[in-house]
Nucleic acid binder design. Structure first.
Lengths: 144, 144
DNA sequence: AAAATATCGGACAATAATATCCACTATCAA
DNA sequence: TTGATAGTGGATATTATTGTCCGATATTTT
C-alpha cells in the first residue's frame, strides 16, 4: 500500500506527536528505538517531514524533533502520505494507465473508485493526534 | 497498490479472456500490442499465470495463450493478484508491522481494516469475465 | 573559545523490482 | 524430415527503493 519510507514516517510522526503532547522533544535515537527502524534511513525521512513543515527539528545539544502542540489537529494521515509517497495513491489508475478517467476508464475503474474514495476519506479524516492518544492509552502499538 | 507485474497480469488476463470468449488464441505479441506492455517482461508474467493454471499456453506455430471458456466465471481479480503479488495486500499490516493483529493492533489497524475488507470483497467478487465483456462493449480500455 | 552533541546533506552500498537478451524446446506445416 | 514458429528458462541489465557512512553545520554547555 505505502512505501516503507512512508510507513516509517507515519509511525515516527505518531510517536513524536505523542511525546510533543507532553512537551517532550525527542532525538533521532529515541524515534528509532520507539518504532524500531533503521537509524540513518529514518533520519532521511524525518528530514523530509521537517522540510514539509510537518515536524520541527532543532540542532545541537537539547536538539531533536517535535511538533507544535497547537497544530496537532491539523496533521492528518493524508498529510504525511502526500509528503512522502505523493498522491498517486489517490489519483493514479488501479491498473497503471496514464489516461484512465471517467470518459475512458480502465476495466477496474469503477470498482476501484469506491475503495480509493474510502481510503482517501479515511486518510483525510484521521488525525495524528487521535492516533497518538490511542497509543498513549496503550490501545495501539508502534513496533514489531 | 499493486506491482507493475500485477497490473500487466490483470490487463493481459482480461484481454486473453475477451479473445477466448470468441475462441481466439492470442500470441505474446497480440497481448503486448493490446495492453502496450514490454514484451519480454510480459512473457514472464504470462508464464507465471500459466504455471498458476490461470491461463493456458501452447507452443509451436498456432500456439499462444488462451483461457478455458467454461471456467471464465471462476477467475476473479483476487485469483490474479494472489498469484502475482501474493496476499500481503489482504493480510499485511498497513504500517508494515509483522505482529499487528486485533489483540495488538498498530495505530491505524481499525481504520485500515475497513478499507482492506472492502478491497478484498471487491477483488473476490469481480470476475475477469465481466471485465472482459465491458471491454468488448467498448465501455472500458486497456491502454495508455 | 573549545568541546560536546545532535541534525543535515551528499556520496555510496545493497536489495528488490522492472526490463531485456538469447539460446533452447516443443509443435506444426509443407 | 526439415524449417518456421511460438513459448520457456536462465542470465544479465537497468532502475527505484531501501539502507549506510561520514564529514559538515548549527547549537549548547563548560
Amino acid at each position: 500500500m505505502f512505501s516503507k519510507a512512508c510507513e516509517y514516517g507515519i509511525r515516527a510522526t505518531i510517536y513524536i506527536a505523542e511525546q510533543s503532547r507532553h512537551d517532550r522533544k525527542v532525538s533521532l535515537k529515541d524515534v528509532t528505538r520507539a518504532i524500531e527502524s533503521p537509524e540513518a534511513y529514518t533520519s532521511k525521512i524525518l528530514q523530509q517531514l521537517s522540510r514539509s513543515k510537518i515536524i520541527n527539528s532543532d540542532k545541537g545539544p537539547t536538539g531533536g524533533f517535535s511538533m507544535n502542540k497547537q497544530e496537532l489537529d491539523e496533521v492528518k494521515l493524508s498529510t504525511i502520505v502526500s509528503a512522502i509517497d505523493g498522491d498517486e495513491i489517490y489519483k493514479g489508475c488501479g491498473l497503471g494507465l496514464k489516461k484512465c478517467n471517467e470518459k475512458m476508464p480502465c476495466p477496474v475503474h469503477n470498482q476501484f473508485k469506491l475503495i480509493r474514495d474510502e481510503l482517501k476519506k479515511m486518510l483525510e479524516t484521521t488525525t495524528i493526534k487521535s492516533l497518538s492518544t490511542d497509543l498513549e492509552k496503550g490501545l495501539t502499538f508502534l513496533k514489531r
